[in-house]
Design a protein around this nucleic acid. Structure first.
Length: 275
DNA sequence: CCTCAGGGCTCTC
DNA sequence: GAGAGCCCTGAG
């Protein structure tokens, strides 16, 4: 299937900028990506994406939503540049990088695993969790595993998570899975909360602090006003703006980038990381 | 063979 | 609000 995209959209930037952990570069330059309920193979030529999948049900809707193709990034980019001259460079360098809309449960577990952890380790752990408890899918002669639904993890023990090399985060995952299974509308209920309410609610789970909660809201719940502050962000703000502590960074971001703080931070982060 | 930090969080003081 | 400890992995 072919999908027309905005001329600025960049598949490579969007896939590789660090927001998703389960994508696989193919020899022809296309990507196999694991979505909630299917595998897609996707490549870009000019203004068109070519997409293959093992599951063609509502494929256009799913892919459009996943890559956030209906959002007006030209508007957001202009908004940010107008708000802050110093971000213009980052906006231009990141142009085409959309925020991917991922499945909330997978994002929650992935970012609990991400705390004080490297991208490679995170990917390995998530892939192992999927291999053990997710649905097996054969796609183009390759074997992939969907990320398991929370109910599939209901009886998994702390020890079994440990075997997935998640280290001290084993009990955090166990606890979160229990929370979600005990209250099956919990993940859905986050959508209707304000950003601050959602942050507080998520942070009630051990292992979810401000950074992890922010990432969850940004990557799974389309709350673009959240602002993850981690060690990288601190370095960036020290270098570009001379702003040092976290509360000063937050105040500046809120005042300057407003409801698009989360997009701004992705751009700044991405640009700095590529250096 | 080490040693160390990595896109944090919890617990304690 | 500052600091130690956490657990695994790859880089040096």
């Amino acid at each position: 299937m072919k999908i027309k995209v905005n001329s600025n959209f960049s598949l490579i930037e969007t896939v590789t900028c660090g927001q998703i952990f389960r994508f696989f570069l193919q020899e022809d330059g296309s990507y196999d990506i694991i979505l909630k309920d299917r595998i897609i193979n996707v490549s870009q030529k000019g203004n068109y994406l070519t997409v293959f999948s093992n599951n063609n049900k509502d494929l256009l809707t799913n892919v459009t939503n996943y890559f956030d193709l209906n959002n007006d990034y030209d508007y957001i980019d202009n908004f940010l540049i107008k708000s802050d001259k110093k971000i213009e460079d980052a906006v231009i360098k990141s142009r085409g990088m959309n925020l991917i809309n991922q499945d909330p449960f997978e994002v929650c577990i992935s970012y609990i695993v991400s705390a004080n952890n490297s991208v490679l380790s995170i990917s390995k752990s998530i892939n192992e969790i999927a291999r053990r408890w997710g649905e097996k899918v054969l796609f183009d002669d390759k074997t992939y595993y969907l990320f398991p639904e929370y109910c599939a993890l209901k009886d998994v023990s702390i020890q079994e998570y440990k075997e997935c090399k998640v280290g001290f985060r084993d009990k955090y995952i166990y606890n979160f899975v229990k929370r979600v299974n005990d209250n099956q509308s919990y993940l859905q209920s986050i959508y209707s909360l304000s950003t601050d309410e959602a942050l507080l609610s998520l942070m009630q789970s051990p292992g979810i602090g401000p950074k992890v909660a922010s990432c969850i809201l940004l990557f799974a719940y389309q709350k673009y006003d959240v602002f993850p502050v981690d060690t990288w962000v601190k370095k960036i703000f020290k270098n570009i703006y001379g702003i040092e502590n976290e509360s000063n960074i937050r105040a500046f971001a809120k005042k300057t980038y407003g409801k698009y703080s989360g997009v701004a931070i992705q751009y700044l982060f991405h640009t700095s990381r590529n250096k």
